[in-house]
């Protein structure tokens, strides 16, 4: 059974407003790394909040770990099973000391003090922040703060973590730090990841990509299949990976290249192959 099932979901912020999310359906398998790609205002953040039961669908249904998010009595079960990391690292840390912040969610769940202590240490180690337990959040870099936020979610032992543009405000170093931690959690701890972003290079690392535009699902597939649909990506206000665009220009110039080249390495291999033929 899939861990998340979104079925024909629509959402309106107000009765008289347009739909921020329109008839969206998809499923996520346990252990999957799914990227949701969309421009600002495409509805991707709304979708994230629907999965965490912060919003309840106007119509349709969202099921997380078998729990319907409309079931008000089980809202806290949904949130414990499906953690969320937000965009601004400053606005999601509650406590003045890192380890206290990581403990926050567990304290809310009523976990016993000794167990909290154990899980906090474990979670901080898992994100490589073990030595920062006693630090103050405002002394950390953006990437470090985001890793603390991840530890705070991780300590609650969720099966799914939704990242809502969690790297958008970070510098390249911070982005890489966070991306590495998340990929490791996905591979090694088997945590299902929903990665919401407008960065191509990040989405390229996912197992599968959903493209969302104007609140609707426009495409769904493996990164290679998505990126070769350059017209669709441009239409959705997204970037086309540079090497894919270059490959297209070269194909237009008469070169015989595959249409799903993503990286510089692949391009070098292909071009060298062509060169050896001439």
């Amino acid at each position: 059974m899939s861990i998340i099932a979104v079925s024909d979901v629509s959402y309106k912020y107000r009765e008289d407003a347009g739909e921020a999310v329109k008839n969206v359906s998809f499923e996520v398998e346990e252990g999957e790394f799914l990227a949701i790609l969309g421009a600002n205002g495409s509805g991707k953040s709304t979708l994230a909040k629907l999965i965490n039961a912060l919003f309840v669908p106007t119509s349709g249904s969202v099921t997380v770990c078998g729990i319907d998010t409309r079931d008000e009595s089980r809202v806290w079960d949904v949130r414990a099973a499906c953690g969320m990391v937000f965009q601004n690292p400053d606005n999601q840390l509650v406590a003045t000391i890192v380890e206290e912040d990581v403990a926050f969610g567990l304290e809310n769940l009523g976990v016993a003090p000794d167990e909290i202590r154990r899980r906090v240490t474990e979670a901080l180690d898992a994100v490589g922040m073990g030595e920062f337990g006693k630090s103050a959040p405002h002394m950390l870099s953006g990437g470090q703060k985001q890793r603390v936020a991840i530890a705070g979610v991780l300590a609650m032992k969720p099966r799914v973590i939704v990242f809502d543009e969690s790297t958008a405000m970070l510098d390249p170093v911070g982005r890489a730090e966070v991306m590495n931690v998340v990929r490791r959690l996905n591979r090694e701890a088997g945590i299902t990841v929903l990665w919401i972003t407008h960065f191509m290079d990040e989405a390229a690392q996912a197992d599968r990509i959903l493209v969302i535009d104007g609140g609707s699902l426009k495409a769904c597939g493996a990164p290679r299949d998505i990126f070769r649909q350059t017209a669709l990506l441009r239409e959705a206000g997204l970037d086309v990976p540079e090497m894919t665009a270059l490959a297209q220009a070269l194909r237009a110039g008469g070169l015989c290249l595959p249409d799903d080249i993503l990286t510089v390495d692949e391009m070098v291999v292909e071009l060298c192959r062509l060169k050896s033929k001439t």
């Binding site: 909040k49 965490n52 912060l54 806290w76 949130r79 414990a80 953690g83 969320m84 937000f86 601004n88 400053d90 606005n91 999601q92 509650v94 380890e99 206290e100 403990a103 926050f104 969610g105 567990l106 304290e107 809310n108 769940l109 009523g110 976990v111 016993a112 003090p113 909290i116 202590r117 906090v120 705070g152 979610v153 609650m156």
Partner: peptide, 27 residues
């Protein structure tokens, strides 16, 4: 105000529902 809004959402996402039933790491 914007920060407060976002913080409230983040706290809710981490299952914060007031003091009832809460434990503390540091006793």
């Amino acid at each position: 105000f914007r920060r407060a809004d976002e913080l409230a959402l983040a706290m809710e996402a981490r299952c914060y529902r007031g003091g009832r039933g809460r434990t503390r790491m540091k006793q």
